[in-house]
């Protein structure tokens, strides 16, 4: 080697402007990440501290106490929330999944599909209270049934539909075209291809969409006030007013009784963890994804 100035310098240079800038940007994005997750942990911590001390089996088994008395639980609200969400799922899942199957498998991206996709996007931006008013006008004002679990289920179904349609549509699109061709190649009809090959392959992703939709819907309060109203008693069929967690929290938090306030905190805790649980379940479902 002649002349030392030709020797390559491969050493790190921590003081150079590029290294400093890189370090700064890494720090900034790390900070923003931290700021993003702080609210979640603050919320969890708050409901845990305020509501955790009132946790106990009585919460799940007893009715709320009359004003002025202590003790009691939220059993009717928990059961009511589950009933309303199940009704919403029973309405929204078949409609949403089949609509998405049409969009992805049978529409050939025609005009109808474009319009439906656009409308789905618009619907997902509709405020939840509008969904409540819609269900109120459609079902309660027209005297089909009164304030009831059924009406609340319809309102939540409207809120769940866009999420289910969009995630299912995406999930079906991910299934490679090759596989459809292979099914046609051995002489399968279109419906056989969709039912036996495409839908099963997409099921994990579809389940995620459904659980995300449930998680969103379960915590809705505004449309519940319009439709489910409230009840201090155990659910009495799906055509009567019904108590839900979200509305119970809203009611009990605003009354001047200590026992009720405590129940509101406990209700928040249960609601948050129900939603968290569904999200975790959604994650588990997508772990074994096909494509």
């Amino acid at each position: 080697m002649t002349g030392n100035n030709l020797v390559l310098n491969l050493k790190k240079r921590p003081g150079s402007p590029r290294s400093i800038f890189g370090l700064l940007m890494t720090f900034l994005s790390g900070l923003c990440l931290f700021l993003t997750i702080i609210p979640l942990f603050l919320v969890l911590a708050l409901v845990l501290i305020k509501g955790g001390s009132h946790l106990g089996p009585h919460l799940f088994t007893q009715l709320p106490p009359p004003p002025g008395l202590a003790e009691g639980g939220l059993g009717n609200a928990i059961l009511g929330t589950i009933i309303v969400v199940l009704i919403a799922v029973a309405i929204a899942v078949p409609i949403g999944v089949l609509a998405a199957v049409y969009l992805s498998e049978f529409s050939g991206d025609n005009k109808i599909a474009k319009v439906v996709r656009f409308c789905t996007n618009v619907l997902s931006g509709v405020p939840s209270i509008i969904a409540g008013i819609f269900a109120y006008g459609l079902i309660i004002e027209s005297k089909i049934v009164g304030f009831s679990a059924l009406a609340a289920g319809v309102a939540l179904a409207v809120l769940m539909l866009p999420t289910i349609i969009k995630t299912t549509d995406e999930a079906l699109k991910i299934v490679p075209q090759d596989v459809r061709w292979a099914a046609f190649g051995v002489g399968a009809y279109n419906y056989q291809t969709v039912l036996k090959i495409v839908l099963p392959a997409a099921i994990p992703a579809i389940l995620t969409g459904i659980t995300l939709a449930i998680a969103r819907a379960a915590g809705e309060t505004a449309p519940m006030i319009f439709t489910a109203l409230n009840s201090n008693f155990w659910p009495d069929g799906i055509t009567k007013p019904i108590s839900t967690l979200a509305v119970s929290v809203y009611n009990f938090a605003t009354v001047p009784y200590e026992a009720q306030n405590q129940l509101a905190w406990a209700g928040s805790l249960i609601l948050v963890f129900l939603v968290l649980l569904t999200s975790v379940l959604a994650r588990l479902a997508t772990r074994q994804k096909t494509y």
């Binding site: 090759d178 292979a182 190649g185 002489g187």
Partner: peptide, 20 residues
Amino acid sequence: PIEVRKRIGMVFQKPNPFPK
């Protein structure tokens, strides 16, 4: 066309087994 494809099968460029 379904009857045609039953009698005239096809193997594709990329292996494309069903997720089964």
